[in-house]
């Protein structure tokens, strides 16, 4: 582990440095407009001319007027510290000092990022549970029934090549028109996305016991049920966790995309709102929140995996 940390820190520092540098040409138009209003002479002097000039040419022609690049109100590319400030403002600050924050009202502020992250997390978790449950059931069915395998498996594989997310807005709107709204429609999309990785992984896992082990079950005259419970399911655990990691990430993407068509909260809604109102820092903050959520979820499954496999004596 320590082998990885110094290079990782180095690469991250390099990325942040690049980010700070990239902020200058990305925001140069706005910066120069503000500088001009403040009375600084910039070349070329009119905004129209500047619009037709390349960003790099503007940067090198006006090195004296770039001071505000990292502190614009609505930058095209916010600097890292602006994103961190926005994150702080919409989480800690909003909850502690906001009128509707946790400290004053006892519940998470509807304007804070935590509230939206929680909405997304709920949809993700519900969808993940539904998708994983159905996926395991279908995999068990496929392993035990030849007809089911031959009928369903090719379609399960083909469905992996289809951009399922395209269905998301339709599912939301259709379920909405039937009267189902709130958590469930988003969870349906999440479930749909997490379903197939689990099916494919579990079919592989349930088939992983070799013929020697299956023969042993036969000599014990084990029933199909016993084979499933005592050999196939335990043997499939590593495969299950590998698919669960993919499934939870897919589930989160499903929940976020599911939040786009109906603006009822969640990180996806937050991103879309930010994009409508030009609040770039808000989009970035939501994005980082989503990334943190993904990291925590995948990490949690990894931790569960390590603990389970260790208890089962299967850890490497």
């Amino acid at each position: 582990m320590t082998r990885f940390i110094p290079p990782l820190v180095g690469v991250l520092l390099a990325l942040f440095a690049l980010w700070y540098i990239a902020v200058v040409p990305m925001n140069v138009q706005d910066t120069l407009t503000r500088a001009e209003r403040a009375g600084v002479t910039v070349t070329p002097p009119s905004a129209v001319e500047r619009r037709d000039t390349g960003a790099l040419a503007l940067v090198f022609g006006n090195t004296h007027a770039l001071g505000e690049s990292w502190s614009l109100d609505r930058p095209r590319l916010p600097a890292p510290h602006q994103v961190v400030a926005e994150l702080y403002k919409s989480t800690v600050d909003e909850e502690l000092n906001g009128r509707r924050g946790l400290a004053r009202s006892g519940s998470l502020s509807t304007r804070g990022l935590l509230h939206h992250a929680l909405i997304t997390l709920n949809a993700t978790a519900l969808g993940f549970l539904i998708g994983t449950g159905l996926g395991i059931l279908l995999a068990v069915g496929i392993v035990h029934s030849r007809v089911m395998e031959m009928s369903v498996m090719p379609w399960a594989i083909v469905s992996q090549t289809i951009p399922i997310v395209a269905l998301a807005p339709m599912i939301i709107v259709v379920l909405y028109s039937v009267g189902v709204q709130g958590l469930l429609p988003k969870a349906v999309i999440s479930a749909y996305l997490s379903f197939f990785p689990v099916v494919v992984g579990m079919v592989k896992g349930l088939r992983s016991p070799d013929s020697m082990q299956m023969d042993l079950m036969t000599t014990y005259s084990a029933s199909t049920r016993d084979r499933l419970m005592k050999l196939r399911l335990p043997a499939s655990t590593p495969y299950l966790f590998a698919s669960l990691k993919i499934a939870i990430a897919a589930s989160l993407v499903g929940a976020i995309v599911g939040e786009l068509p109906v603006q009822k909260g969640g990180l996806g809604a937050r991103m879309l709102a930010g994009s409508y109102y030009g609040q770039t820092a808000q989009i970035w903050a939501a994005l980082i929140m989503a990334a943190a959520l993904a990291a925590v979820l995948v990490w949690a499954i990894g931790a569960a995996e390590r603990a389970t496999l260790k208890r089962m004596g299967m850890a490497q």
Partner: peptide
């Protein structure tokens, strides 16, 4: 670079990158 970028790449591969679409 391999030791620095690989964990980062693995991490990024699990993130909901579609979220960058509005930006």
């Amino acid at each position: 670079l391999r030791r620095g970028l690989l964990p980062l790449g693995n991490f990024m591969a699990a993130l909901p990158i579609v979220g960058t679409a509005p930006i």
